[in-house]
Amino acid sequence: MNMIDIENVSFAYSGKVEALKNVSLCVRKGEWVTILGHNGSGKSTLAKLIVGLLKPQTGTIRVDGVELSERTVYDIRKKVGIVFQNPDNQFVGVTVRDDIAFGLENLQIPREEMVERIERYAKRVDMYSYLNKEPQALSGGQKQRVAIAGILAMRTEAIIFDEATSMLDPDGRKRILSYMRKLRDEGVTVVTITHDMREAVQSDRIVVLKDGEVLKADKSENVLKDKETLEQSNLELLLPLEVLHGLEKKKSTNEELKEFLWQLSLNG
């Protein structure tokens, strides 16, 4: 069963060239899919389309089998949450507690249950001791963790990370990456949108976008090693895989070394 189905979707911002051209892709339930692409490849537009913040000019989007329309969009947002790029521009509450509560208040969750969920999910992202803190007292990475807790508290089935680590420092980025891994292990469907290969490396499948078109969609291993495709989309191979690529070009038969380099790329 697919969590997200995108079929022949095209989209253009008013008066501009098409941001997405006839894009089709799917995300299975419980899967971690990375959408890779250069700046301006249309990857963030795709995220906004999935949760109905933008409307495609052509094509259909289905979430959990339900076609996205003006009538179904509110139900779909209960199933798919999204963490945006800028940690500062999505923190609605005056404190961490208020911010996690925001989505729950919208879903009209009773107060007692709200309190219980806030505490539980703040613990899940290790922000429990920060519940009364104001956003000014938090780092970018901590704000993103609060955003994750806010979505988890709404009990969505899928969570999209729209360049959610691009404004963070290395520690913040690693931390968010570890939560992505945890979520997938717990059965949550994860979609990460990024141009950072280190974020792509752990996912199950990768879709590469270039200028609004799908260049390649395949198992992660096959995409990560595909120098040609990646470079076409302004991306670069992870260094161990670049070395591996060099070895293979020279027809090296040292399988042990090759496997070692592959492992090295996975825990970068």
């Binding site: 692409g37 250069h38 700046n39 691009s166 404004m167 141009h195 290969m197 470079e231 302004n234 991306l235 670069e236």
Partner: peptide, 10 residues
Amino acid sequence: TSGLDPMGRN
């Protein structure tokens, strides 16, 4: 270079 894709950064 924060926020730039790899080629843009390079």
